[in-house]
């Protein structure tokens, strides 16, 4: 009989293999473009999981970090910076922004922090809208160069898809390693009880700040890949609505779960596309689905999968 960790490892490899086979099934058109957006959202939501899922801090500023990463990349590429340097630049820009937002605000709790992050998102949006000579204002930035490494340029949705699968795999692996490190345990302890964590010698403010900045880096790198693969960015892709959607993805997927974060992001990106045939009614069904999930499985999809897995294990042992 397979041990649980062996089973988990096999599942991860099977998921990666299935993801790699997807372009063979759907080609390089619409479906793969949606898959690319789903993978980008998954990276951003994985980042949100650090601060909200593991550290317990409500953050509605993740879409703003996503936008900052995208704009940093687009502007750097327009100035002739090699693409390879742009993920680093995007990460540096969002870390700086994360620090500027995090240092004065992470002593705040619950809805006070939520309000501050909403305000941060709005400030970023307004700067993008009004700093037109640099950001292109509400018209956005067009003709952004694509991913190019050592003279080799990625073109088409399929090549970008594989880059995104690789990036998401690395991001998930890094999150898994961090979760089981001292930093990860400090994050969980901070979420469970800040007072108890402080009494155990954990600097909770520093822990929250670290989680905040790691989450921002995930969003920044995703923003970098978004700008390079779509070739156009505008403020309407990084609004407060997008921030709420990212939070919904995390809640639906399962806060605190890596697999849940990815599942939530992928399913809530694909679901509206699958429900397009319903026309304007899809929003009603979508909303009802979200409510049903929160009522009947408050732990998100991750808990449903976990309970199915447990049931299968019990059945296996029983037989």
């Amino acid at each position: 009989m397979m041990l649980p960790f062996e089973r988990s490892r096999l599942t991860v490899w099977l998921v990666i293999a299935a993801a790699c086979a997807l372009p063979l099934l759907v080609g390089g058109g619409y479906a793969l473009q949606v898959a690319n957006i789903a993978l980008l959202n998954a990276i951003v939501v994985l980042g949100l999981n650090f601060i909200t899922g593991w550290t317990g801090q409500v953050n509605f500023g993740q879409a703003a970090f996503y936008g900052l990463g995208a704009y940093t990349t687009a502007i750097a590429l327009k100035f002739g910076v090699p693409w390879l340097a742009t993920p680093i630049l995007a990460a540096a820009a969002v870390m700086l922004a994360g620090l500027v937002l995090g240092v004065p605000t992470l002593r705040l709790r619950s809805y006070y922090l939520a309000m501050t992050t909403i305000g941060f998102g709005e400030i970023v949006r307004l700067v993008i809208v009004h700093w037109e000579p640099v950001t292109g204002g509400t018209s956005g930035l067009r003709n952004i160069p694509g991913v190019g490494i050592a003279g080799f340029e990625l073109s088409g949705a399929i090549q970008h898809y594989f880059l995104l699968v690789a990036t998401l795999s690395l991001a998930a692996l890094a999150a898994h390693r961090l979760r089981h490190s001292a930093i990860g345990r400090a994050m969980i302890a901070t979420r469970d009880s800040e007072i108890a964590a402080e009494l155990s010698g954990i600097d909770t403010v520093r822990t929250k700040l670290t989680a905040f900045m790691i989450g921002a880096v995930y969003a920044g790198v995703a923003g970098c890949l978004y700008a390079s693969s779509i070739h156009f960015i505008s403020p309407d892709s990084f609004t407060g609505t997008q921030a709420v959607l990212l939070m919904t993805m995390l809640i639906m997927g399962g806060m605190g779960s890596i697999a849940g974060s990815i599942l939530g992001a992928v399913s809530l990106t694909i679901l509206p596309e699958l429900l397009r045939f319903l026309g304007q009614w899809y929003l009603v069904l979508y909303g009802l689905g979200v409510i049903a999930m929160i009522v009947f499985a408050p732990g998100g999809m991750a808990t449903i999968i976990a309970s199915l897995r447990d049931r299968a294990l019990r059945a296996e042992r029983g037989s």
Partner: peptide
């Protein structure tokens, strides 16, 4: 919808 990303998805479809 209201977002450029969704507009691109709609167009690809």
């Amino acid at each position: 919808g209201a977002s450029s990303t969704d507009a691109l998805n709609a167009m690809n479809r």
